[in-house]
Design a protein around this nucleic acid. Structure first.
Lengths: 338, 338
DNA sequence: ATCGTTGTATTCAACGTTGTAAACACAATT
DNA sequence: AATTGTGTTTACAACGTTGAATACAACGAT
């Protein structure tokens, strides 16, 4: 069984017409006699012909594929987002190729640099470790939309949520429930960690506004944003002798990790310690207690990203870079309101 | 800013050599003078040349892209699996394009049918709703590897875990902790639901072996395998007046949903009801109580799938269809062993 | 009868790449 | 000096597709 590759040529021969006519039928060109059309269609069916996308793409200079570059697929937030992006892209006839950067700066540079150039028509990129300089150094001119943080003055379109305001709102909510020693889990040392920086800023703003003292010992740094990091950070807080009565975690995974540690050690949540997260992943809605969190409108993020990208793919790159702010919502659940 | 597409031609002109020589340099052909090589490399750099993959693919008849078709990306099991597949593929220089079928038979037929033909060199497919007949009717000859269940006598390679044995082991474990009324959540009516069928069979085998009566009222059917389905099914069990003292859920999401319902209603886990799942997703390791589960070796699944696929891509499709059985492990955690 | 006009089908070239085969330069051998 | 060999480079064709230009009918209007 070799590969008897079927091409327009073969269909044409069988149907007794020219290659171009077959091409016309395939592409739904109007001026084709019903008779010819059905003859061609029969031949297509008989040979089980499929257009060769590589050839078509080569000819047209477009592939119909866009890439979605995210840190990790098994971080639920990105998985959920990916789902929305794929769905939104589909509606525009675009196929999504997913790239995992593993949050490594190297891989992210590679992506920005356009190592998939010519394979993709556009890029939706959710960078974690990339610096504004990296981004500015970008040579490739594939249309790109950035998700997540606002990278200072970038030349690219952005879809963002107001991280500072959202983090502030979450922290203020904790304060409003009467908590006085509100910890934060999720600070990062890396200068490129915009997410962390912005949410930390919101946290401090909220403390100030609530008239609570900022205590550095209550701010826990983490390597990554996984459950394990949250669990360890919570353990450190409890062991420090400065146990907080509330914790704002910079994402839901950290919060779920922290929750595990708290329950494991017999601390009541929210009785003893209240807990808030960020992202509103499904896990948090089924944890016990259910998790109070900031819920960014993921579907809107995906749709806006695709819209921006589509616009840039057609209109070209001359247009001014746009920044679209997407709504979020504080969702109060049992972990702060038991 | 138009698109001054740079091709081998342009590089060649700048470097003062032929197109083929540039091609040779790009492809690391050995017989190129250091002098020529560096001249070409300089030109490549200056023009920021990137090979056009469409053209290369057209020429070579391969794209280097494989598709991974899964029901939903935001089901953690598939997200985790996808991650392993992407990683394994990368090691072979393959790019993974992820297709979401949404578990709809239509979409799955489309995938099997090869609607991405010519765009992908191979397909790793985790079907949920597809019937063996659908599969047998497949015309497309793109190499394919099936994940998950064993579809009877399929002509394609399979990577499977022994669902019956695993389900049996999990249920037996529940029985071994002294439980007498062991429920099952995850049965499905759909004939195409192989997973459900096999795990249910294992469940019944275990009951028989443990000398426990099979009680149909303890078997809960679900539409899908999400947390919400598990939560609802558990509620039905509790409301039935036939409350079980243990539940084997056909995946971890169902178990987490069930867990939520149990805790919400004040039932102790595992004190009052023990709980076991299937898949070993990360959520289960951080739930409280942590979740006893069947842990299939996902990394092995991914690696084997890629290996099988790669073999079929090179050796052609004449080879006999192979079925590879991957190891699993019963991981006992707090939800059955508090 | 001739001239557009309109609809249908064809020919040709090109997209950017690489395999094949052949050409070329130069050294070692006869 | 002619021959063989070895390494380096090139010309050409082809992969399958489609846009542009063109040919060919058939038709109604002059």
């Amino acid at each position: 069984m070799e590969k008897p590759r079927v091409g327009l040529k073969d269909v044409a021969r069988l149907a007794g017409v020219s290659v171009k006519t077959v091409s016309n039928v395939v592409n739904g060109y109007v001026h084709v006699t019903p008779a010819t059309r059905s003859r061609v269609e029969a031949a297509i069916k008989e040979l089980n012909y499929r257009p060769n996308l590589s050839a078509r793409n080569l000819r047209q200079g477009r592939t119909g594929i866009i890439a979605l570059a995210v840190p990790e697929l098994d971080i639920p937030y990105f998985a959920e987002l990916a789902r929305f992006v794929v769905t939104a892209a589909e509606k525009r006839g675009l196929t999504v190729l997913i790239d995992q950067t593993g949050a490594s700066r190297e891989r992210e540079q590679l992506v920005a640099e356009g190592f998939r150039a010519h394979l993709i028509d556009g890029l939706i990129f959710s960078p974690l470790a990339l610096t504004p300089e990296d981004l500015a150094a970008r040579m490739d001119d594939t249309p790109m939309v950035l998700l997540g943080e606002r990278v200072y003055d970038g030349p690219a379109d952005h879809v963002v949520v107001d991280n500072v305001a959202a983090a502030k709102e979450a922290t203020l909510h904790l304060a409003a429930t009467g908590r006085r020693r509100i910890a934060a889990i999720g600070a990062q040392d890396d200068v490129a960690a915009e997410t962390s920086r912005l949410r930390l800023a919101g946290y401090f703003e909220a403390l100030a506004e609530a008239g609570l003292p900022a205590d550095d010992r209550l701010v826990q740094h983490v390597e990554t944003y996984h459950r394990a990091d949250g669990a360890r950070a919570m353990a450190r807080l409890l062991d420090s002798g400065q146990a907080p009565d509330a914790v704002f975690c910079f994402n839901d995974l950290l919060a779920l990790g922290a929750l595990r540690t708290l329950l494991e050690r017999g601390h009541a949540v929210p009785g003893e310690v209240a807990l808030a997260g960020f992202d509103d992943i499904e896990d948090g809605r089924y944890a016990t207690p259910t998790l109070t969190t900031i819920s960014p409108d993921k579907q809107a993020i995906a749709r806006q990203a695709i819209d921006l990208l589509a616009a840039r793919m057609t209109k070209g790159s001359q247009a001014e870079a746009r920044e679209i702010r997407v709504a979020y919502q504080l969702v109060i659940r049992e972990s702060t309101d038991g």
